[in-house]
Design a protein around this nucleic acid. Structure first.
Lengths: 360, 360
DNA sequence: TTGAAAGCGCTAACAA
DNA sequence: TTGTTAGCGCTTTCAA
C-alpha cells in the first residue's frame, strides 16, 4: 500500500538506479557500483552519481540486493520472552554485536511455545535471514536442523540441545548452582530448598513439559552438592514447576509452612526469586536470621530489597554478544566443529545469607 | 554464504517454483498460485503442487515476493532501550498485535541517540518495511517526515512530536503527574520533590539535551499541581537530568541532606525510582514516616521492597498494541487525520505514602 | 482454470 | 574504468 506521494522528481514512483544513472549521465551499472560501493568507479563518476541520487532522494531497495547476493545482512533472534530481563539484556548484547558488524536483528517471541518457535524459524527462513540465534523451547529440533542444512547457521543461546550439532553460548549452570549450595552448606545449612521453574529429575522421562538444559543443570548442581555433602533425601526440599512468580510464591509458602521448614532457599531465576521473597514476607520470616536466600540472576530488585539478596550474576550482555559473534563467524564461512562457549558467572555476596537459626 | 547442503532432491540448490511446478506437472504460474494462495487453482492441481512442494522441501522466498508486491509484511520498531522494562513490555505489545495481523517486527535500539535513530529509520526504509513505530529521541523529524512522504506510515509511541503530523499513542503524563502531586498535597505535604531524567522548564530553550514530551508533561503536571495549591517556589524541589539510577540517587541524596528536606518525592520513572529508594535507604529515612514516595511505572521491585511503593501504572502492553493497530490501519490505507491516543493510567496505592512527619 | 511472458530493482559476469 | 546483458524468484497481466 505504498501511496507514492509526489517526490522532488515530480513523478509518482520511487527513484531507481536507472533514474539516477540517467540524471548522472552514466550507465546503470556505473551508478549501481557507485551507490553500492563495489567494483571500480572513477571519482568524477561517483561524485555525479551521488549528487544525482541525493537530488532524486534515491533509496536503495535492499530486498532486490538481497535477492541477488543471497545475503540480507539480517539475523533472526528467537527468544522466549523479551519481558524477561535476562532475555532483554541478552537481546541487547546480540543487537549491539550485530550492529557493530553491520547486521540488523529481527526479533521474535515464542512464549516458551514450541509451535511458536517452529513458526518463527519458518518465517525467518522465508525472509532469508543470514543466520538465527535461538533460545530453544524444546528438544525437538527438526526445524533448526532444517535451517542449518539449507545453509542458514544456527547458534543456541542459554540452552543446550544434545542432539543438535550447533554452537551454544551459556554459563556453567551446573557449577554455579553447586557453588551456591556449597556456600549454604558451608554456612551450616542442611535443609536447603530449591524452587525452580523447570521439571525435576523424576519428570524427565515423562512426555509432558519442556526439558531444557539450563533448568536441569541448575537442579543437578543443587542435588550434586547435597549428595556430596551426605545430605539424606536431597530431593526433599526441591520444588519444581514454578513457571510464574505466583506459582513460586505458592510453592515457597507450602515449604515454609511445613513441620521442618528449610533454613535456606535457592531460587533458580529472578522471577522465581520474586515469588520466594513475597512468600517469605507473607510468612513474616526475617532474612537471613530465619532463612537464607540466594537467587540466580542479578535483577534490579535484588539490590533494593532489604536485606539485599545474594545472587549468581550471569554475564548476560556478553552471552548475547558472544552468540552474535559466533553466528557471524559461521555466516562468514567458519566451518569448524560446533563450539560450546561457557561464560563465567559471579557470586555476588550481599546480606541474605547467614548460618541457620539456632532453632533450625 | 549459503552452503546448500544436498537436500532431498539431490542437487545443491534451494527448490524454486519452477522446480515444484515441474514435479507437479503444471506450469510455474499455476504452482505459484497454489503456493501463494491467490488466483484460481483447481483442487486437483493445488493438491499435486502442495505435495510436490512438500517433497522438495520448498520454502518460498519472501524477498522475491516482497519485491513484486511492495509489501514485506514487516513493521519496524525503533525504541530507545529494550532493557527498559517499559519499552520491553511495549515492544511485547507491538509484537503481539503485529503477529496477530500477520506481520513480523524488526527491532532497533537507539540508546536515545538521534543519530542512531536516523540511521535505523534509513535501514528500515531500505528494507522496505510496511510501516514504522518509533519512540522518538529528539524533535528533529526530517527522517520521519521522509518515511511518511514516501508512503511508509509512521506511528509515534510514548512521545509526541508537535511538528510531525503522525498518529501518537501515549498516556496523559501531565494529568497523571498532577494527580500524584495532588494526592501528596492532599495528604498534607508541601515540600514535594520530583526527580526526573528529563530537562526542566529552564533548560528548554537551551540547545543541548533532548526535549521530549513525556518527561516534560510529567514535570509540567507536577508544577501545575504545586502552583494550583499555592506552593511558593514550585521548582525548589525539582531535580532534573537524572539519566541513570546512579544520577538519580545522587540528586536524591543531596535533596535529603539539605536544611529543609522534602517530605515526599515523586520519581518520574522506575529507573529514577530505584536510585531514589537507594538514597533514602542510605540516609536511613523510614518510608513513609519521614518521607513519602511515589514512582511512575509499576516495575517488579516496587511491590517487593518494604514498604511497597505506590506507583502510576501505565497500560504498557496496550500502548504497544494500540500503536501496532494504528500502524496497520494506516498500512491498510487509512487516510484519516493524525490521531492522538491517550490511554488511561492507574494510581496503585500501596504503603509508601502517609502524611508529613510532625517534625516536617 | 491454466500457461506464456514480462517484469520488480538490483548485481555480476563479461566485453569493450 | 565503463557499458551491455543476463538473470535472482516471484507475481501478474493477458490470452488461451
Amino acid at each position: 500500500m505504498w501511496i507514492h506521494v509526489a517526490g522532488r522528481q515530480g513523478n509518482g514512483a520511487a527513484p531507481t538506479i536507472p533514474d539516477v544513472a540517467r540524471l548522472a549521465g552514466v550507465s546503470p551499472a556505473t551508478a549501481a557500483r557507485a551507490l553500492g560501493d563495489y567494483g571500480a568507479v572513477s571519482k568524477a563518476a561517483r561524485a555525479r552519481v551521488l549528487a544525482a541520487a541525493d537530488e532524486l532522494g534515491y533509496r536503495r531497495n535492499d530486498l532486490a540486493a538481497a535477492m541477488i547476493t543471497g545475503r540480507s545482512n539480517t539475523i533472526g533472534l528467537v527468544i522466549a520472552d523479551i519481558e524477561n530481563p535476562f532475555f532483554a539484556r541478552a537481546a541487547r548484547g546480540v543487537s549491539d554485536a550485530a550492529r557493530r558488524a553491520g547486521y540488523e536483528v529481527v526479533l521474535t517471541n515464542t512464549d516458551e511455545d514450541p509451535a511458536a518457535e517452529r513458526s518463527a524459524v519458518k518465517v525467518l527462513l522465508a525472509k532469508r535471514v543470514d543466520g538465527i540465534i535461538v533460545a530453544p523451547t524444546s528438544h525437538r529440533t527438526d526445524h533448526l536442523a532444517v535451517a542449518r542444512d539449507i545453509g542458514c547457521p544456527v547458534v543456541l543461546l542459554d540452552r543446550r540441545i544434545p542432539d543438535l550439532d550447533a554452537d551454544t553460548v551459556q554459563v556453567d549452570n551446573f557449577a554455579a548452582a553447586r557453588d551456591v549450595v556449597e556456600r549454604l552448606l558451608g554456612a551450616g545449612h542442611r535443609r536447603i530448598a530449591m524452587v525452580t521453574g523447570s521439571s525435576g529429575p523424576a519428570d524427565r522421562t515423562a512426555t509432558a513439559g519442556p526439558d531444557l538444559s539450563t533448568g536441569h543443570d541448575r537442579v543437578d548442581g543443587y542435588l550434586a552438592a547435597l549428595r556430596d555433602a551426605g545430605v539424606e533425601e536431597p530431593e526433599a526440599y526441591l520444588r519444581t514447576g514454578a513457571h510464574t512468580p505466583e506459582l513460586a510464591q505458592a510453592l515457597m509458602a507450602q515449604l515454609v509452612a511445613g513441620p521442618t521448614p528449610p533454613t535456606a532457599v535457592f531460587a533458580s531465576d529472578s522471577r522465581v526469586g520474586l515469588g520466594v521473597i513475597k512468600a517469605i514476607r507473607t510468612a513474616g520470616l526475617p532474612v537471613p536470621e530465619r532463612i537464607s536466600v540466594v537467587s540466580f540472576d542479578d535483577a534490579d530488585w535484588t539490590s533494593v530489597v532489604s536485606p539485599a539478596i545474594s545472587v549468581v550474576a550471569q554475564p548476560t550482555h556478553a552471552l548475547g554478544e558472544r552468540a552474535a559473534e559466533r553466528l557471524i563467524a559461521r555466516i562468514d564461512g567458519d566451518e569448524g566443529p560446533a563450539e560450546l562457549h561457557m561464560l563465567a558467572t559471579e557470586f555476588l555476596a550481599r546480606d541474605s545469607v547467614a548460618g541457620p537459626a539456632a532453632s533450625g
